[in-house]
Design a binder for these strands. Structure first.
Lengths: 334, 334
DNA sequence: CTGAAAGCGCTTACAG
DNA sequence: CTGAAAGCGCTTACAG
């Protein structure tokens, strides 16, 4: 059997409550008593039972993170930072992969996963604001990304439209006129893909260039889908002089397919992405992309969630934060 | 207040025990009783309190995964698969990033992290077998990787030496004679780096080519370090016609640096890696690498851990599993 | 400053 | 097949 608080109390010759006081840093405790308790703890090698503490206090010291797929570099990098941040504040993070499946997203919101955590960082991809509001419960919930922009929820996101517009303008300034977009359908205008596409359209409009739906190719946000989308455009005979992958892996997959087919990057076709994952910098050619402010996103979302949990943030309406972005011009689209 | 088992018992007109029996799929229960309890559960929207269950049963339904850094593609991909596998068996996985720090590794082994989990999948990088044995406690513990090969512990790993030898032989067969290795020191012979280096040396020996320590460049296993290591070799005037990055990101960083400096890959210098992360297939040129059998590793390690937890695996000595590898010959070293 | 007691919501022998 | 009771190891009013 493990050592319990009771054992410590006996060894130190005090009551249970006193041990608890010492453990919880209660102020008004006689130094000598405190010392005796600490000695007993050290001697017995006592470690608090977190489950018991959690049952009694209702706090778990765990935070939930819901995202579609941890093996996607953007999410992997984000999760890694969030975990480091959580550790600094005495929390652990429990990750749930939704695979962008609505059932999985709903489950993460109310099932055991929610119960096990004091608050949630949630990247919704399939379910809507009302479905979330219905099940949100009372525990703090901070949205990540831009599928749900709703005054009811806290939200930490990036400047998708502005950044996509800036990137598109950069491609236009480089003389590109037929910029293919990979990772969206021509009709999309909400969610991450939609917002980035809006930015693209806005930049075209500003430059007086008509929007051509033939240039927009859908695809899951993975490398193989990026490659397949470019292959599709090429085989359909669509002409283009640039490719904007709505995220980096899409752009990287597209670039690979172009190079394999003997299309020169950037001479024949410029390629740009979005995310600035580490891989972008080391691709050949290195990838021009948007750095969406991941550090700021990780930091702000964690701070906001912890503030909600601790009751330091009390705004009734959702707090909305937008991280600053930056354009990283590299070889693939100079 | 949340709905408790007591509420369900009252609503169904049965005792607590009966509700518990239904929840735990106890066999001998009258169908009518079972139905009544299930109706009450559905009507009240009852959800078991996992913390209470855990306090009483001593089981947490969580598994621990300790690795150095979740943002490294190999670990991100592995973690993603392990989580999916765990979910299938009703477990969640709690990840701890050790940053290869011995203090963090020791903490993961016995602190709160251990307490919160029913078993551990552990990639030790800094601490030794004795330190682990001392603190291992009684909960199941499966080692991942090859830092610790010890009869006391269960281990699931890959054929590092064989695979590295096969890859090196492939480079030699392609006419390469001065193969630089990145990610180890010339003296290493244990741990992942050491084993892969051993394989390299064995292949050289077999081909009658002397080992040249000048060709071995150390570096953290990251892209930037791979690039820096190659830059270092080049600037030191070391001649080489191939680079073996001891993992993919190292190789990819190295390849990027070569290309930037106008060295052609594979014409002037062939490049090969180890891991076969998704990125390898889509690099330009695509990366020749070892596929170490990640699917098998994820599957076998999860199965072994769950078998230990459930008591299905009872071997006193550690069970050792080695996944099969495969060579993926691509453009960077045809 | 410190003690004795209740209770968080389950599971599990122990009876019947 | 089902009930009444104890207890997992904490925290937290309530007294003093």
């Amino acid at each position: 059997m493990a050592v319990t608080m009771n054992d410590v109390a006996k060894a130190a010759g005090v009551s249970l409550k006193t041990v608890s006081n010492v453990l919880n840093n209660y102020e008004f405790i006689r130094p000598a008593t405190k010392q005796r308790v600490e000695d007993a703890i050290a001697e017995l090698g006592y470690e608090a039972n977190l489950t018991a503490r959690s049952l009694r206090s209702g706090k778990t010291s765990m935070l939930g993170l819901v995202l579609s797929d941890l093996s996607a570099p953007y999410y992997a990098e984000l999760a890694s930072r969030l975990m480091d941040a959580a550790t600094k504040h005495g929390y652990r993070v429990l990750v749930e992969q939704s695979a962008a499946d609505s059932g999985a997203e709903l489950n993460a919101l109310q099932g055991p996963f929610r119960q096990l955590t004091d608050g949630l960082l949630f990247t919704p991809l399939s379910i809507g604001a009302d479905a979330i509001a219905e099940r949100a419960g009372s525990k703090p919930l901070v949205m990540l990304g831009e599928h749900i922009v709703d005054p009811r929820f806290d939200l930490v996101t990036m400047k998708n439209e502005e950044a996509a517009a800036a990137l598109t303008s950069h491609l236009l300034a480089g003389g590109r006129r037929r910029i293919a977009v990979i990772g969206a359908t021509a009709e999309e205008s909400t969610g991450t893909a939609g917002l980035r596409l809006n930015g693209y359209r806005a930049a075209l409009k500003k430059a007086g260039i008509p929007f051509d739906p033939a240039l927009i190719a859908p695809g899951e946000w993975r490398r193989d889908a990026g490659a397949a989308a470019v292959a599709g455009l090429l085989e359909a005979g669509v002409e283009f002089d640039a490719v904007f992958g709505l995220n980096d892996v899409l752009a990287l997959g597209a670039m690979h397919e172009l190079l394999i087919r003997g299309v020169r990057v950037p001479q024949d076709v410029a390629v740009a992405g979005f995310d600035d994952v580490d891989e972008a910098r080391f691709a050949s050619p290195s990838l021009t992309t948007v750095s969406p402010g991941m550090d700021e996103i990780a930091e702000r979302s964690m701070a906001l969630l912890l503030d909600r949990i601790a009751g330091r943030e009390t705004a009734d309406a959702g707090v909305h934060v937008e991280a600053e972005f930056q354009l990283n011009i590299r070889e693939s689209a100079p």
